[in-house]
Design a protein around this nucleic acid. Structure first.
Ligand SMILES: [Mn+2]
Ligand SMILES: [Mn+2]
Ligand SMILES: [Zn+2]
Ligand SMILES: [Zn+2]
Lengths: 145, 145
DNA sequence: ATCGCAAATGCAAATCAATCGCATTTGCGA
DNA sequence: TCGCAAATGCGATTGATTTGCATTTGCGAT
């Protein structure tokens, strides 16, 4: 029973259930965004617990976490499935290899000034942005094609 | 029978069927990205033709157009459905109102230099990027909330 | 520590976008 | 005009996500 997670839930008024605990514990360990299905499988295969967490429950838990901004939901490229990642509260973007689909996080944002200008020009109140950059990763370049 | 479209198809070795003609004709008219379903409905309601185009056919036609780069496929935010737009061959981004979901196209790209740097740092071969900016449009700001 | 009960979960069925199999139709080169 | 590969219509299917409902569980109040 990870005490940091208990605190996190308390701070967000989230009831501390076994299932929620396991989901967020797993997401915190993940270095890159994962699908609901892959969370389900990972928890299923985790020998530390005997029970598996129902897939609908995984979805319901993720919805809750996203609503509370504990977790971020993405969907890259034109995939019609979502991926989820623990919200580490750092503004970042993603670099995606079009060959192997590997997702790399990149910190640092080149858009501060641009957003300012854009707000002035369009009279939108700019809130946030999403930037995905596509390319071929070093390994895939080596392998050719 | 729009002759420009006939030429466009010929140039891309696409057989000129009634259904394809109607789909691209409609997309060319659209100012913003639309879903497959909304194309289907628009064609269905178009009094200029008696027949409707089957939804599967709309999807197949869109896949073909996307493969040929005549049409671009997007999916905004965390929507798990795609939108399509005629490829006007201009690099652009989208500004999306988080209240009314209106999508506005914005031309001009602030990322040229950044992509260069990023390629050098990560050794990825950078190919393209997708930038979506979220905010509140002027009308929604007026209406308050 | 126990109780009560609203909230959370499990399971199966439903939904929604997108895709597919197959019988029928159609565009287009010969 | 003909022949036929390619395209379409239509119904069934898939894959991701959501929902209804009966059962279980966490946790505040006793
Ligand atoms: Mn940024
Ligand atoms: Mn750009
Ligand atoms: Zn790669
Ligand atoms: Zn708006």
């Amino acid at each position: 029973m990870n005490q940091n997670i208990v605190e996190l839930f308390k701070a967000n008024q989230i009831k501390n259930t076994t299932q929620r605990h396991r989901v967020i514990e797993y997401l915190i360990k993940c270095k890159e965004p994962v699908t609901a299905e892959s969370i389900y499988i990972a928890l299923f295969e985790d020998d530390a617990y005997e029970d598996k967490v129902n897939l609908s429950t995984v979805y319901r838990i993720l919805d809750l976490f996203v609503k509370q901004s504990i977790v971020l939901r993405n969907s890259f490229g034109n995939e019609h499935k979502s991926t989820y990642e623990f919200n580490r509260r750092e503004h970042k973007h993603h670099l995606i290899c079009v060959k192997c689909n590997k997702v790399t996080s990149i910190k640092g944002c080149p858009l501060k000034a641009y957003e300012q200008d854009l707000g002035n020009q369009t009279h939108f109140k700019i809130l946030e942005h999403r930037l995905e950059i596509f390319g071929v990763c070093p390994s895939c370049q080596e392998r050719g094609n």
